[in-house]
Design a protein around this nucleic acid. Structure first.
Length: 439
RNA sequence: CGGGGAGUAGCGCAGUCUGGUAGCGUACCUGCUUUGGGAGCAGGGGGUCGCGAGUUCGAAUCUCGCCUUCCCGACCA
């Protein structure tokens, strides 16, 4: 992409409404614009990041055999009256009426809809287990939206649902999802610690929140220092080996980690220097809640013994749009964002220091073509601007690599290659830079 | 929902106390000179001063009501 043709409205100064670093940087880097409290438009650069995160989440869901579908944003009130949550959910649920005066709502989550889908077509334990998910916009009319996209009212969430005939197999579904979450966050280049969590209004008795440690997080959390060095990549774990997977999950969870609601200083096994008490950003939450929805909504299946039983369910969320902010909170410096490779909107920024200079233009066009031919996502800054602004913008948007081409280096046949994260700059031939980036 | 800020040019702000018809920086447009970490000079465009009432000869400024937005707290991916 040529920057001269890209919509990238960067800001030199921070808009007054943005307080935390991720919100400031997202506005300055031209990723989002606020439309209303907690409601944002995603501009091209931000949308690319959102899509990359979404795709990694999708791939890891697919990898455990979870089926993607798509449910609507607008739901009828009747379903929620069946589950009893139409009253329980309170003012956080945005309620609307259609032209026929029917009560509708903008979905804050989808347990009711998925249960309805399930009960209409599944009758036998032989059709189980089932794992279904979608990635869809949710609306929760938060009392106080804040922190940019980290607590928006409208947000993109992956929500998955499991259906099993008994607790043991439901537990296996939970474990598979646990593994998928570890792999997802690991691929996103961030450490998300699974912590024993409160189940809140969704209900249930088995629940973990995946928390990224950050001072700006909204939750108080407590965990053993051992978590910092723990391998959470989930590599080599066989998701079809029930016992092996269960053992892996138990081993992974053996060190203490709890959110404030579940933390009890009196019984906590760690203390002193071994304990980290800080704040965190909740980026994922997994629940097993058994028959909480299947029973009132009549989602039953026939078991092997011919008896009808309510299906055992779990739900599993990842805040996709929140992750964009959370990743920035976890990875930035005073000059701007530093994207993990996996989610960077482009892998390399190509800076033409002297647009309009024949030699520079030719060298940059050549480099641009070669990078594209090598399958590398490149953002080419061909704008007619002074060098300082280009450097500043490129640092701000945080692409992992920068290739700087100017008249001085060009005279000696070299370009400058900069690593955004380390700040290291080397002067090499373009071919050497290309090799380094491709490595 | 309780407490506390803020709404003046795209963005950052001054002006409000003490009423007199709106300004600075930056960004934007034109020209010239520049060009390796946010250039210089000259010229130029851009404002329902959040909205509505009221007081006054006259309101960004005073009074009342409302709206929006941000921060802290209680709740949540």
């Amino acid at each position: 992409m040529r920057l001269s043709q890209f919509f990238l409205p960067t800001l030199k100064e921070t808009p007054a409404e943005a307080q935390i670093v991720s919100h400031r940087l997202m506005l300055r880097a031209g990723m989002v614009r606020q439309l209303s409290a907690g409601i944002y438009s995603w501009l091209p650069l931000g949308y690319r990041v959102l899509k990359k995160i979404e795709q990694i989440v999708r791939e890891e869901q697919n990898a455990i055999g979870c089926n993607e579908l798509l449910m609507p944003t607008i739901q009828p009130a009747e379903l929620w009256q069946e589950s009893g949550r139409y009253e329980d959910y309170g003012l956080e649920m945005l309620r609307i009426t259609d032209r026929h005066d029917r009560n509708m709502l903008f979905g804050p989550t989808n347990e009711e809809v998925i249960t309805d889908i399930f009960r209409k077509d599944v009758r036998s334990y032989k059709q189980l287990p089932q794992l279904l998910y979608h990635i869809q916009w949710k609306f929760r009319d938060e009392i106080r939206p804040r922190f940019g996209v980290m607590r928006g009212r409208e947000f993109l969430m992956k929500d998955a649902y499991s259906f099993d005939v008994d607790y043991e197999s439901a537990r296996h579904a939970y474990n598979k999802m646990f593994l998928a979450y570890c792999r997802t966050f690991s691929r996103l280049g961030v450490k998300a610690i699974p912590m024993v969590a409160d189940t809140g209004p969704i209900g249930g008795d088995l629940s973990h929140e995946f928390i990224i440690l950050a001072e700006t997080g909204e939750s108080e959390v407590f965990c053993d220092r051992k978590w910092l060095d723990k391998d959470l990549t989930g590599k080599g774990v066989d998701l079809n080996d029930r016992t092996g997977l269960e053992n892996w999950v138990q081993t992974t969870l053996e060190d203490y980690a709890a959110t404030e609601e579940k933390h009890d200083p009196a019984t906590c096994p760690v203390s002193g220097d071994d304990m980290i008490a800080t704040r965190g950003i909740e980026v994922g939450h997994i629940f097993h809640f058994g028959a909480k929805y299947s029973e009132p909504m009549g989602a039953n299946v026939l078991g092997p013994d011919g008896k009808e039983v309510p299906v055992m369910m779990g739900s599993y969320g990842i805040g996709v749009s929140r992750l964009v902010g959370a990743l920035i909170e976890a990875s930035h410096d005073e000059n701007g964002i530093i994207w993990p490779d996996a989610v960077a909107p482009y892998k390399v920024g190509l800076i033409n220091l002297r647009t309009g200079d024949d030699a520079c233009d030719a060298a940059c066009e050549d480099a641009y073509g070669k990078l594209q031919a090598a399958g590398i996502e490149v953002l080419y800054d061909d704008r007619d601007m002074r060098a300082g602004g280009k450097f500043a913008d490129m640092d701000l948007i945080g692409l992992p690599w920068q290739i700087v081409i100017g008249p001085k280096g060009l005279a000696n046949g070299i370009v400058e290659l900069k690593n955004r994260r380390s700040g290291e700059r080397v002067e090499v031939t373009f071919e050497a830079a290309l090799n380094q980036i491709s490595a």
